[in-house]
Nucleic acid binder design. Structure first.
Lengths: 193, 193
DNA sequence: GTCTATAATCGGATAGAC
DNA sequence: GTCTATCCGATTATAGAC
């Protein structure tokens, strides 16, 4: 991909995280990317095209981000590794907030845009499987389908809590506590199986 | 509430579910409701006011159909009651789909629109407390804070699963199975406390 | 490829008649 | 209470120079 295109998409992702899909202004995007509006329209067909490519870009980047974390492979015990992986997404730092916000926008946009769904589903699957694998290290005797289901639940739980946090309904510390509680409950249920 | 207001709010809920909050145009709302744009502004302060009242309308309506199921002929045991209340929101029927879609949109919009947050938080709290109360009937010995936390988790879990369903990442039957599993895990954890 | 300047459109909001 | 007509600022999108 052309460097200019990437530069604009990165700026668009930042802006979507800050203002939302609805709040993205082409002129503001140009300023954020350090180019002119004319150039935006040279590289993209129209505003919808920008949006579509940016949302694809966000879901691609999410895959890389998750993969990078796995490759880091620190010698934590499985349970701590699981907890850290999930709690990583519930931190009030600029980068996490931006990623989570953009991800939420992507998820919400996909409800009305079928073209986005495949990418989103793929990125979600990678994430679910990573969590399921970590759960498998915590409870090696648990059957695979139970691990898969717990992975789906915990990631969906995290998305739900994240949205409440971002929409101002939950303070971050409380959201983290709640997520820890959910992990406890799921791990206990896998042990009970 | 004035019949005209209700008529407009019903149209707004339909439109939000169909096009998203982002796609709601006052002119289109007028057409959908069968009135003029001028009348919309007679009944509502501005576009945000429409959104805010639609949010209230949607959560009231959700309560109403929840309450409707409570008033069934044969009273269910608390556990079944809890499960049915939550699963009610995960059904592929027009009215539930419309409500869930609109709710998801408003949640996502609140991330960028502070004006929506208070109402959203209030509506969420009512819901969380209702679920906590049902949990309290299932596990009367559980301490109140544990019930509150479980209520917050289960409702956030449901929102997360609902978004995945609506964005095409999860089939409805599977989403329902996952939610049942989450209820099992939470109830078991409360028993263990 | 990139910019500046500007045309064209969109959409929220209001005025005023009935 | 309700409508028609319209205003006007905000944004998208294009033209044309470099």
């Amino acid at each position: 991909m052309a460097p200019r295109t990437t530069q604009i998409l990165e700026a668009a992702a930042r802006l979507i995280a800050r203002r939302g899909v609805r709040g993205l202004r082409v002129e503001e995007l140009a300023a954020e990317a350090g180019v002119s509006t004319g150039l935006i329209y040279y590289h993209f067909k129209d505003r919808t095209g920008i949006l579509r490519q940016t949302l694809e870009f966000i879901s691609d980047r999410a895959e890389r981000y998750t993969a990078g974390h796995v490759a880091r492979a620190e010698p934590l015990d499985p349970r701590a590794e699981l907890e850290e992986t999930l709690l990583l997404e519930l931190q009030d730092t600029p980068v996490v907030r931006e990623n989570s916000t953009a991800w939420g926008e992507l998820r919400a946009s996909a409800v009305f845009d079928a073209d986005l769904r495949d990418d989103l589903a793929r990125a979600t699957l990678v994430w679910v499987q990573e969590v399921a694998a970590l759960l498998g290290q915590v409870q090696p005797t648990a059957p695979a389908p139970a691990l898969a289901a717990a992975g789906e639940r915990l990631t969906a739980q995290l998305e739900g809590l994240s949205m409440r946090w971002l929409s101002g309904g939950l303070r971050i510390d409380h959201a983290r506590d709640l997520l820890r509680g959910a992990i406890d409950a799921e791990v206990a249920a896998l042990r009970g199986d």
